[in-house]
Design a protein around this nucleic acid. Structure first.
Lengths: 194, 194
DNA sequence: CGTCTATTTGAATGTACTCAAAAGCGGTGG
DNA sequence: CCACCGCTTTTGAGTACATTCAAATAGACG
């Protein structure tokens, strides 16, 4: 069986799990080792897994009509990643999921997640809370995009994700806060001169 | 008891409800009539309800340091509204919730929602799906803000929310798509000249 | 009818982007 | 260990999209 210690710990942070639930988890999660730049999802594919990051870091992003990437989410240790829309509707995704570092992930297939939702209703509660937390975070991000300059957003990013700043090239951070790499470079120059 | 027909219909769209669940709903939801411009939540208050719009339309927004409003969400008939973050943490909200039309809403208090989550686990599932749907919508909105011009965002708004366009002043739409009313006016002029 | 709010218009300005090119940096293989 | 390759970061000049501020106009509602 996979080593699911980190996943278990993460889930127990929401609600305690029974022996039976732990057993099911161990049986139904798939461990995968991912190389840097390897894709877990590409545009046009259907997202068939919920992915939990045990080690490493991945990004979820969109490529616009001009070929530019826009990062929706980074997921490092103990975070989940999925194109929830595609996962539910089973329609092709418009997103890419790619490792920015060599990573180890645990994946749950849809049929297994549904099994958990059905047979162990507790998981509905856990995933409800997770979805609501993500929703709040995303709302804050949208509001900040509306009301702050790029420099302020960059400062917030540094404050909020200190564990990521030395793991990501600046160009990835630029894509996350919604600006060009060139402009981020100017912002950094400005900040460092103070 | 309140007339909860529209709420019941909305929830049954996710999962069928038992007689007992319907009874509980009828007993625990509070019907409120809201005047135009009346607030259901103001910055600094704790969000203590999930609000379901039976009739009318409300907006959820943030006021930035310069005093400008930024609309996070409109909720018209059969939509939910809450500051989920404040609701969960019981910390003061930074958001405002205000009726843009005279409205009729149904509210669920936190203790009652928790009761549903606990005694009728089905509600976890329903609210999980709702949260996930909102998450997808918000992700799309964020991506569009990154990759589209204001004019494109305005066109998308018209396509996506046709039922709202004659119920909202343009200044509210401008706030939702993240631009100034003046600039929206210029966009509209441009569009109508074609 | 008058008042309040929403919309439009103009001119000046600012924030961030585009494109091009140079410089830096890190890993890999000879 | 050095040379090279690919990728990231920086820099410059010109430009575009959107904002600010002020003022005029139009609409809605009591």
């Amino acid at each position: 069986m996979s080593d699911i210690a980190s996943l278990v710990k993460h889930l127990q942070g929401f609600l305690p799990l029974s022996e039976e639930e732990l057993d099911e988890l161990a049986q139904r999660t798939h461990l995968r080792k991912i190389k840097r730049r390897q894709f877990l999802l590409q545009e046009g594919e259907i997202c068939r897994h919920y992915t939990f990051v045990e080690q490493g870091c991945l990004k979820l992003y969109y490529i616009d009509v001009n070929g530019y990437e826009h990062n929706l989410q980074f997921a490092a240790e103990n975070e989940w990643l999925a194109d929830i829309g595609s996962f539910h509707t089973e329609k092709p995704s418009r997103l890419y999921m790619e490792a920015v570092e060599p990573s180890i992930v645990l994946q749950l297939e849809k049929k297994d997640l549904i099994l958990f939702y059905t047979d162990y209703p507790k998981f509905n509660r856990i995933f409800r809370v997770m979805a609501e937390d993500s929703l709040v975070e995303l709302q804050n991000r949208l509001l900040q995009n509306f009301s702050s300059t790029a420099a302020e957003r960059y400062r917030s990013f540094l404050n909020k994700y200190p564990h990521l700043i030395n793991r990501l090239p600046n160009t990835q951070i630029a894509s996350y806060i919604g600006i060009t790499p060139e402009f981020l470079s100017r912002i950094r120059k400005e900040l460092s001169s103070k």
